[in-house]
Design a protein around this nucleic acid. Sequence first.
DNA 1: TCCAATTTGTACTAAACGGTACAAATTGGA
DNA 2: TCCAATTTGTACCGTTTAGTACAAATTGGA
Lengths: 187, 187
Amino acid sequence: MSRKPVERGDLPPLLAEVFRKHGYEGASLALISEATGLGKGSLYNFFPGGKEEMAAAVLADVDAWFEGNVFAPLRDKADAETAISGMLDAVDAYFRSGRRICLVGAFALDDARSRFAERIRGYFASWVDALAAALARAGRKDAAALAEEAVSLIQGAIVLSRALGDTGTFDRTIRGLRKRLTARRQA
Amino acid sequence: MSRKPVERGDLPPLLAEVFRKHGYEGASLALISEATGLGKGSLYNFFPGGKEEMAAAVLADVDAWFEGNVFAPLRDKADAETAISGMLDAVDAYFRSGRRICLVGAFALDDARSRFAERIRGYFASWVDALAAALARAGRKDAAALAEEAVSLIQGAIVLSRALGDTGTFDRTIRGLRKRLTARRQA
DNA sequence: TCCAATTTGTACTAAACGGTACAAATTGGA
DNA sequence: TCCAATTTGTACCGTTTAGTACAAATTGGA
């Protein structure tokens, strides 16, 4: 019977929730310890670089998830229309109608940005570029501008949904994008 | 010759920059003291409630600026088209092509939201409602949805511009909105 | 000029912070 | 079973935190 020793790889999702909830500065080691059930000894064993390394691991984990579930399909799927629709499904599920924030977006706004600038830039650049590629494959001439706008809109919808305490805002945004991005002919 | 005694009313803009740069948690009294040139004695004299009262004063100040320069014109100006165009001018100048973040939006994402939920909600509700009113006056049938989308887009453009380190994203967004929101006939 | 009210700087808490040290416990392969 | 390597909890470090206390300086009206 295999027990469940905690592995470093299990931690990023737990850490992510702490950073999402409290931000980089607000995520104290006490909160992290509580969320993971791990003492400082274990945490510094897994992440000798402390909080900064934990956040870096979380960002890498998020990035990897989006690369596998969102960016790569957008770039590679033969059928651009279903790739784009799939992106919207994945994004809707991931952000839970705006109840869950985008950690990378939040880091872009606060001063965690200075620590993780390149990772943050890379995440959004990949997203925009992958979506633009899919839109171009679908025959849209305004692919780059449309992709940039779509990603902006998703990020803004998260902000607005949370601010208004209304998941409807996010849901309407996703529905609107589905129409706009998968229109048969270009705008 | 009138000297320049520091008044409480002078402080919110200075405090705002500290909160913008470091977030609510990251804005320590040491940083605030440095940014204002005021010691703790003075700060607690003006804001007996400490950091929370300072942040509340900043939010009230921001809210008042938008109410006067953005929301009220959108609601009251006879010419809806120029009111909307004026909003975009004001927003562009205020956020400086995305180099300056929206403090209210940033608070909506981090856990400052729990302290200032109602203020944050009110700010965005006022914005969306005022813009919707102007759009309706301009004869748009999709006014409410369009207003919600426009505010989302602005917020998202701030996130994306900063993440990519590219003010072009914000500028393109404003230009796109100007076209879309002031189109003579509805979409 | 005078004096009460306001404003300010400094010293001071007590708690929380990130991080370190390190011995004890636990683990898994041989 | 044994033992080296890993994992863990706890005590501790110096620093920084928000906030308080309060006397000294400054102010503006009378």
